[in-house]
Computed example of a mutant assay.
Amino acid sequence: MLKEQRALRRKANRSPVGAAPGTLTAHPHAEPTELNLTLVGNGRSEFHENVAFDLVAKRRGEFPLVWLDCVGLGDVELIERVGKLFGLHRLALEDAVNTGQRPKADFYDAHGFVVLSMIDEIKSGRVEQISLAFGKNFVVTFQERKGDPFEPVRHRIKRNSPICERGGDYLAYTLIDAIVDSYFPVVENMGDLIDKMEDAVFAERGGDRRIKELHMLRRGVSGVKRSLWPLRDAMAGLTRAESPLVTTETKLYFNDTLDHAIRLIEMVETYRDMLTGLIEIDISMAQARTNDVISFLTIISSIFIPLTFVAGIWGMNFDPKASPYNMPELETYYGYPLALLFMAALGGGIFAYFKWRKWL
């Protein structure tokens, strides 16, 4: 999963070098653009999937609030037509099509524009760029591909919640809040994995595979942190916005979303510190195990080196009958058991000395 996300970041779409501002260039592998239309107001709501642009243009004025979801960024001509219909700035459209943008919040004369990183698949934590343009009576979202955390928002619209009675800024808030909250299951799942890894580290399970998993998990946490830091800045920009497009009441809700983003960042930083600590502990424990083995081998060697020396001396092939100086001990009646007893006493004495010095 992480490898796929890094590959997607490397392949993020960019305008050609030297291109004029506002140039729209589709990525070669971008998915075809589909339009999903949500009409809200007058005590009712309508949902239309994969509609033609002409239907959007025709029905836009029939409802007080319109949400157009553009899924896929492959059809730049269609995206340009959408931009003209809602009066979106060319620079905003360029940022929407050119993925890999840093999360931010900009305000133009006719609309606000927000770029965020969205988790479109909670189970795997797959991330994509999403852009939102909103005005007094519309919201236009641009997604790279199908999949989003907006289903609770759609259900609230169906139940005729307060979303249906407010403007585009509040609808934009509910969508942004859903994006931010989609990080919580992913971050909490990382916390559960860290707890399991902590148990594995202290139980000394997994070996080399555990080290690899710790590094991969820390890389994933760092990736989420890279997404959340600029997201927090974007939320702060919305709460401080001096624009008639965002009401004072909606700023309070944006501030609540900012609190969620800050909480997520604190959780991620805590998890990253925990992982760093676990990696250091695991390395220290591995070094301690190595030192224990080396100490054990050193002690065994220290005990058996003198015994090997004794056995080597009496194992030399000298004939005591040829000379009285040629190892007369070999003719001792109890020489073999006495030699064994001497070596046992020597080894036991060395062992007792190690215990006395508390080396064992």
Rank of each mutant, 00 (worst) to 15 (best):
F86Y: 15
W356R: 15
Y253C: 06
Y253A: 11
L360G: 14
G348R: 03
Q101V: 08
R145K: 14
F309Q: 10
L275Y: 10
E249G: 15
L340Y: 00
T270A: 14
N50P: 00
K358R: 11
H215Q: 04
Y108M: 09
D195T: 08
T174M: 05
A339K: 01
L78D: 14
V187T: 07
L228I: 09
N326T: 10
A96N: 04
K158F: 07
P32Q: 09
C164Y: 02
I313S: 03
T332V: 05
G74C: 11
I211M: 02
P328Y: 11
G348E: 11
L132I: 07
T25W: 01
G347W: 03
R81W: 03
E242I: 05
A30T: 11
R159M: 05
D169E: 12
H215D: 03
L275E: 08
L68M: 07
P230H: 08
V140Y: 13
T174N: 00
G135C: 06
L91Y: 09
G347K: 09
E165V: 04
G349P: 05
A200T: 00
M190S: 09
V115Y: 01
T257E: 09
F142I: 09
L231M: 13
Y336S: 12
E269Q: 02
D148R: 10
F354L: 14
Y353P: 12
M285S: 04
T270M: 11
P185T: 11
L78I: 11
T174Q: 08
V51F: 10
K158S: 15
V17S: 15
P28V: 09
H260N: 10
G237A: 13
E144F: 01
L278R: 00
I281S: 01
G277N: 15
T248R: 15
H215N: 01
G207D: 02
G43V: 12
I163L: 11
D319S: 14
K196Y: 05
L73I: 12
V127S: 08
T239Q: 15
L85P: 09
A261Q: 04
F107K: 06
K58C: 02
L231K: 07
K104L: 04
M343I: 07
G335A: 15
C164H: 08
S222F: 05
L193D: 03
H111R: 08
A200D: 01
K104W: 00
Y336H: 09
A133K: 07
A20M: 05
A7W: 12
R218Y: 01
G191C: 13
I283E: 00
P162G: 04
G220E: 08
D109C: 04
A52S: 06
G112M: 06
A172S: 08
V71G: 02
K158W: 07
R357F: 02
I281F: 00
L116Y: 01
D54M: 15
A52M: 12
I79S: 07
F296K: 09
R59L: 12
G168P: 00
D259E: 13
F318W: 07
R59T: 10
N50D: 12
L238F: 07
H27I: 13
R59P: 00
